[in-house]
Amino acid sequence: MSANSSTRTFRPYTGEKARIARAYDYLVLVLALFLFIGSFHLHFALTVGDWDFWVDWKDRQWWPAVTPIIGITFPAAVQAVLWTNFRLPLGATLCVACLSIGTWIARIFAYHYWNYFPINMVLPSTMLPSALVLDAVLMLSNSLTVTAIFGGSAFALLFYPSNWPIFGMFHVPVEAGNSQLTVADMFGFQYIRTGMPEYLRIIERGTLRTYGQVAAPLSAFFSALICTLMYTLWWYIGKWFATTRYLKRI
């Protein structure tokens, strides 16, 4: 336990005081673990969850654009508290690790074991490399501006390449029913859902399709631009919520 205090000369606690501080740290750690699994996961699932749930939603245009834009929100807000007050450079990694734990548990027990979706169909994406870089940039620069521009951009740009080793194999072409489609599409057609992508939306619609194989990098760069703005916005949202005010009445 430590906090930046302008009036206090920092001297590490020893003996019982140190044990009390350590006990408090552990309690906060447990609290933070469940808080961020629960809250970040709900926020993420209800905004970009469909892209994360299903392998056939993981397209070249929307998935690399929207996932980092939503994924950078909680990391920025938590960094604003943990870095500013405690000099802990782990806000982003903490949030994203918690999200990964939550999604993996749900995919295995809620999708695979309850409703028999193949686990390969519901593999969650990862933002861990992006989060590690975001934390590292903040730690090395100690600057909101530098982290928003370079960290935010890196967060988005790293998303697609860090997920490609996991999902690339599902994008190889196969021929079925006299049509060429991907293995991911085959999963979709074999396991009919109410959230079928072809029913709810048309994948890869728009003129971006004209650019062929560079659709994913273009989406990633667009995401990078928005991430720099989202990072700054959510940094201040995090700071606003971390108020220490006491009110007379509510």
Partner: peptide
């Protein structure tokens, strides 16, 4: 909050 916001929330989608 974990059980409500994470596990059973995603399970809602699955079901």
């Amino acid at each position: 909050v974990y059980w409500a916001g994470s596990y059973f929330a995603e399970q809602d989608n699955s079901w």
